[in-house]
Design a protein around this nucleic acid. Structure first.
Length: 155
DNA sequence: GCCAACGTTGGC
DNA sequence: GCCAACGTTGGC
């Protein structure tokens, strides 16, 4: 299943992912988002990379799930801003997967453009007040976005 | 188990 | 910087 992952570019951008190639998706502290990574994501699943709190906000690239789920190490680190005192090595609370960079789009696909599209405006990221940082994406929506980004599938 | 208070997200 | 929407916390 395709996914959409949000990141604030001033924290971690698609350019950062392109540079490091692969990154543990740490710092997620929402149970629904955690469960997607822990229980639902499969190795090789595609993920649209979305810049939030950006000007403009929008989809900027493509990544893929590059690991099985494992505990987010930042939950055990008291010096981390993601430290969780209720978690322990013997009973971790937060799990994550790695994402690998696939592509950086030549142009951002702005949120506004998604909302103007009759089909794409159904996406969770387009819903008012949607704050979930990881959301599943419909196959049809995923394919349309790749097409908009210029990744036309050959016959 | 309810729900008010609070903190965070994220578009604008 | 504003504020609506949402998730979490904690008293009861």
């Amino acid at each position: 299943m395709p996914w959409l992952i949000k990141s604030e570019p001033n924290v971690f951008s698609i350019q950062d992912l392109e540079k490091v190639k692969q990154e543990p998706w740490n710092g997620v502290r929402n149970y629904q988002a955690r469960n997607f990574m822990w229980k639902e994501m499969k190795l090789g699943d595609m993920a649209l990379f979305y810049h939030s709190n950006a000007t403009p906000p929008g989809i900027v690239g493509l990544a893929e799930v590059a690991s099985a789920p494992y505990p987010d190490s930042t939950q055990f680190d008291p010096t981390s801003e993601y430290y969780d005192p209720k978690a322990s090595e013997s009973s971790p609370r937060w799990y994550l997967v790695d994402f690998r960079h696939i592509a950086t789009f030549r142009e951002i696909i702005p949120l506004q453009q998604l909302r103007e599209d009759e089909m794409l405006r159904e996406m969770m990221v387009c819903q008012r007040g949607s704050r979930l940082s990881i959301t599943p994406v419909e196959e049809t929506h995923f394919r349309k976005i790749l097409k908009i980004a210029g990744y036309e599938r050959r016959a």
